[in-house]
Design a protein around this nucleic acid. Structure first.
Length: 434
RNA sequence: GUGGACGUAGCUCAGCUGGUAGAGUCCCGGAUUGUGAUUCCGGCCGUCGCGGGUUCGAGUCCCGUCGUCCACCCCA
């Protein structure tokens, strides 16, 4: 408090504290197992890449590149950037490690991403993504499988307030042609466009379509649809994807206005949204990027991927389930007397060897017995193990149940490793309120 | 980047129209010097986010700034 202006977290960069870690660990565990079951392999990538990688992959005129990247010059004079997303790095790694020839890669990675945005709920400057990429599969079968895998993930996590939106952006040629038609349309109605839309008319006219401004809805609903201007191959690709999703029983809505803010997407795009998180409602989204790899200098390879916002999914998780009790100790060891205190570590190490599954918390930092028992109680332990000078002289220790009326008993030191696990099973079976 | 709300003890909060701060909880000690959670008694903890202004006097009013939250924007 006194050094507040000196010791301060960087804006938009959060600590995840022990009280909140459960959801993170659960999401990490479930995704790890699920991805392995679908044949995806983990890779770990640098957080920093050359700035030019993101400029070329994401697009020079996107918001991310224009105003959100953490870019700096290192002491060698290179322009480097803290990754704002994961796909560019995965593709770069596939190229530079010679993984592309005849590639059929199923990869996933995770970690922090960085974007300099104004923080709000579900949007932070350092945030975490779990990212999945399939490289070398033309689809649409892999498109459907990826989406099915995400649907299964929500099911396994117990998340229900989500909806799947899909769309096709067509090939980059088709998109370019559509873009001209769209710009022509909006220019005819330029008088009713708001300031944001006028700005986007030059840079990224497709984004005008998902404006939230109520006054814009009339113009937008009258705009020509990308869906009506797809090239025949993309049309087939998308129709087959829809049929496969339907056959798999996965609910979706086709949203012709679903466009992405990154330039590399082509054909299939999808987004899982929720109504439970406020304005930052996209929890998982991605799409196909068939042209990106050649654009970055690799041999032509089709690919599709998605990223999930960890903070957002964890927030959803915390809404659907009680925060689990923090892990508590089985046994709390208290000591009485100087000799017992010195002997305690050795005795406990021996017990850890003999009963590795029992969690033993040893009282640290001294304190009288009153104090030690108060700590034992707060630790949640079922049992207190009392090592006192008097007991040790007789070769015994005292065992006191902390959640039961059952009285304290003595046990020979050499029998503790047998007696404690048996007692814990007994005590765990019938917890009483004291 | 734009707009709005809010910053008081470690935590949760109260402080009416300006008269220099309070509760609960937590923590510590005692009643019980080898036995916890309940009870009772006592104690510690604040430059009222920070800086400036108005005033005899500012937690309270004004300005600036930093931070948090929400929305726009953006997106995972």
């Amino acid at each position: 408090m006194e050094n507040k202006f000196l010791v301060q977290a960087v804006r938009g960069m959060n600590d995840v504290l022990p009280a909140n870690i459960a959801g993170w660990e659960r999401l990490e565990r479930v995704t790890r197992e699920l991805f392995a079951a679908y044949g995806f392999e983990e890779m770990r990538l640098p957080i920093v890449e050359h700035t030019s990688l993101f400029k070329r992959a994401i697009g020079e005129f996107t918001d991310i590149v224009e105003k959100e990247m953490y870019t700096f010059t290192d002491t060698g004079g290179d322009s480097l950037t803290l990754r704002p997303e994961a796909t560019a790095g995965v593709v770069r790694a596939a190229i530079t490690n010679g993984m592309l020839r005849g590639a059929r890669l199923k990869l996933w990675t995770s970690g922090p991403m960085f974007r300099h945005e104004r923080p709000q709920k579900g949007r932070y400057r350092q945030f975490h993504q779990i990212d999945v990429e399939s490289i070398g599969f033309p689809g649409p079968d892999i498109d459907a499988e990826l989406i099915a895998m995400t649907a299964r993930l929500w099911k396994q996590l117990g998340i229900t307030r989500v909806k799947l939106k899909i769309n096709s952006l067509g090939t980059s040629e088709a998109r370019r042609a559509y873009r001209e038609i769209l710009v022509a349309y909006f220019r005819q109605h330029q008088a009713v466009l708001d300031a944001d839309s006028l700005r986007r008319l030059e840079g990224n006219p497709l984004r005008i379509l998902d404006s939230k401004n109520p006054d814009m809805q009339a113009v937008i609903s009258g705009a020509p649809l990308l869906t009506d201007h797809l090239d025949p191959e993309s049309r087939d690709h998308f129709d087959t994807l829809c049929a496969m999703l339907a056959a798999a029983g996965i609910e979706y809505v086709v949203d012709p206005r679903l466009v992405r803010g990154l330039d590399y997407y082509s054909r299939t795009v999808f987004e899982w949204v929720t109504d439970a998180l406020g304005a930052q409602d996209a929890i998982c989204s991605g799409g196909r990027y068939d042209g990106l790899i050649t654009q970055l200098g690799g041999e032509a390879t089709p690919a599709i991927g998605f990223a999930m916002g960890v903070e957002r999914v964890v927030e959803l998780l915390s809404q659907v389930e009680e925060e689990p009790e923090p892990p508590s100790a089985d046994v709390y060891v208290v000591t009485a007397g100087e000799r017992a205190q010195r002997a305690a570590l050795g005795i406990v190490e021996g017990l850890r060897d003999a009963m590795p599954d029992v969690t033993l918390h040893v009282n640290l930092g001294g304190g009288n017995l009153k104090k030690q028992f108060a700590r034992a109680d707060k630790s949640g332990a079922l049992l207190a193990l009392v090592l006192g000078d008097g007991e040790l002289e007789r070769g015994v220790a005292a065992l006191k149940p902390l959640r039961h009326e059952a009285g304290q008993s003595e046990c020979a030191l050499e029998d503790l490793a047998d007696r404690i696990p048996a007692l814990l099973v007994e005590l765990a079976g019938s917890p009483e309120e004291l």
